[in-house]
Measured scan of single mutants.
Amino acid sequence: ALNRGDKVRIKRTESYWYGDVGTVASVEKSGILYPVIVRFDRVNYNGFSGSASGVNTNNFAENELELVQAAA
């Protein structure tokens, strides 16, 4: 299972961040479909780089994520 702070690569092909590595911000335990919230260094097309207006978190299912580096 994934944990907060883990570095993960995104495998959801239609995602803006496909192939990117993000950090797990939190994992919901309530049984929702996309329980893993991942935070990225770059914002998506809703904002400009360096601006706070873009979105830099997204929810994924565990099977859409590949663990790159476990949290220390």
Rank of each mutant, 00 (worst) to 15 (best):
N3A: 11
D20S: 04
Y18I: 02
G19Q: 10
S49F: 11
G5R: 02
A52C: 15
P35L: 13
L33G: 13
N59L: 05
S30A: 12
G31S: 13
R39N: 06
G19F: 11
Y16S: 05
T13C: 14
A72Y: 08
R42N: 14
D20V: 08
V8C: 10
G54C: 15
S53V: 11
K7P: 02
L33A: 12
N63S: 14
L67T: 03
S30R: 11
R42E: 15
A72F: 08
E28L: 13
S30I: 10
N3W: 04
L2E: 09
V55M: 09
E14I: 06
A71Y: 10
D6N: 02
V24I: 10
N3S: 11
N56A: 06
R4Y: 14
T13L: 12
G5S: 00
V55L: 07
P35A: 08
S15P: 01
N44M: 14
E62M: 10
L33H: 10
N58M: 13
L65H: 00
G31D: 13
F60L: 02
V24G: 01
I32W: 08
L67C: 07
G22Q: 02
N58L: 05
E66R: 03
G54E: 05
R39F: 11
G22L: 05
K7E: 05
E66L: 06
A1Y: 09
S51Y: 04
G54I: 05
K7A: 06
Y16T: 02
N46P: 15
R12T: 08
N58F: 06
G47R: 01
G5N: 06
R9S: 04
A72R: 10
Y34G: 06
Y16F: 14
S30E: 12
N63H: 11
E14R: 04
G47S: 09
K11P: 00
V36S: 00
V68L: 14
A25H: 11
A71G: 12
R4A: 13
D6G: 01
D20G: 03
G31M: 11
S30G: 08
G22V: 02
A70Q: 09
S30Q: 11
A72P: 12
E28P: 04
Y18S: 05
R12P: 03
W17L: 01
G50W: 05
D20W: 06
R39G: 06
N3P: 01
N46L: 06
A72G: 10
A70G: 07
Y34R: 13
Q69S: 10
T13N: 08
K29V: 12
V55C: 15
L33K: 14
V43E: 13
V43P: 15
Y18Q: 03
N63T: 11
V68A: 03
G50T: 08
P35S: 07
L67R: 04
I32C: 14
G47P: 15
Q69G: 08
